[in-house]
Simulated scan of single mutants.
Amino acid sequence: MTGSVGETEQTVPIMSNDDVVRARQLVRTLAQQAGLSLVDQTKLVTAASELARNTLVYGGGGAMHCGTVRRDGRKGVHAVFEDSGPGIPDIHLALTDGWTSGGGLGLGLSGARRLVDDFALESAAGAGTKVSVTKWRR
Score class of each variant (00 low, 15 high):
Asp40Gly: 00
Val80His: 06
Met64Trp: 05
Lys75Gly: 03
Ala94Ile: 09
Asp118Thr: 03
Gly85Lys: 06
Ala48Ile: 09
Gly104Ala: 11
Gly76Asp: 09
Pro86Trp: 05
Thr68Tyr: 01
Lys75Tyr: 00
Arg137Cys: 09
Thr46Asp: 06
Leu115Ser: 03
Arg74Gln: 10
Val80Trp: 08
Arg22Lys: 12
Gln41Glu: 15
Lys135Met: 15
Asp19Val: 02
Gln25Asp: 13
Gly128Ala: 02
Phe81Val: 03
Ser123Val: 02
Ser101Arg: 07
Val77Lys: 05
Asn54Cys: 05
Pro86Asn: 09
Leu56Asp: 04
Arg71Cys: 02
Thr46Arg: 06
Phe119His: 00
Gly59Leu: 04
Gly108Glu: 07
Gly73Thr: 00
Thr55His: 06
Pro13Cys: 01
Val131Ala: 06
Arg113Val: 01
Gln33Asp: 15
Pro89Lys: 13
Gly126Tyr: 03
Met15Thr: 12
Gly3Met: 13
Leu26Ile: 06
Tyr58Gly: 01
Ala63Cys: 00
Asn54Ile: 05
Thr11Asn: 04
Asp83Trp: 01
Val39Gly: 03
Ile91Lys: 15
Asp83Leu: 01
Tyr58Thr: 01
Ala23Asn: 02
Gly98Arg: 13
Arg113Gln: 10
His78Ile: 09
Val5Asn: 08
Val69Gln: 10
Thr100Tyr: 06
Val77Tyr: 04
Leu105Tyr: 12
Val69Glu: 12
Gly98Val: 14
Arg137Asn: 14
Ile91Asn: 10
Ala47Val: 10
Arg22Cys: 01
Gly87Asn: 07
Thr68His: 02
Leu51Tyr: 08
Lys130Tyr: 04
Val5Met: 14
Gly98Met: 14
Val45Phe: 09
Ile91Asp: 11
Ala94His: 07
Glu122Met: 11
Gln32Ser: 11
Gly102His: 06
Asp118His: 05
Ala63Phe: 04
Ala125Gly: 01
Ala112Glu: 03
Leu36Ile: 14
Leu115Pro: 02
Asn17Arg: 01
Val57Pro: 00
Glu122Ile: 09
Ala47Ile: 10
Trp136Glu: 12
Lys130Ser: 15
Val80Leu: 13
Glu122Ser: 12
Ala47Tyr: 07
His78Tyr: 13
Arg138Ser: 10
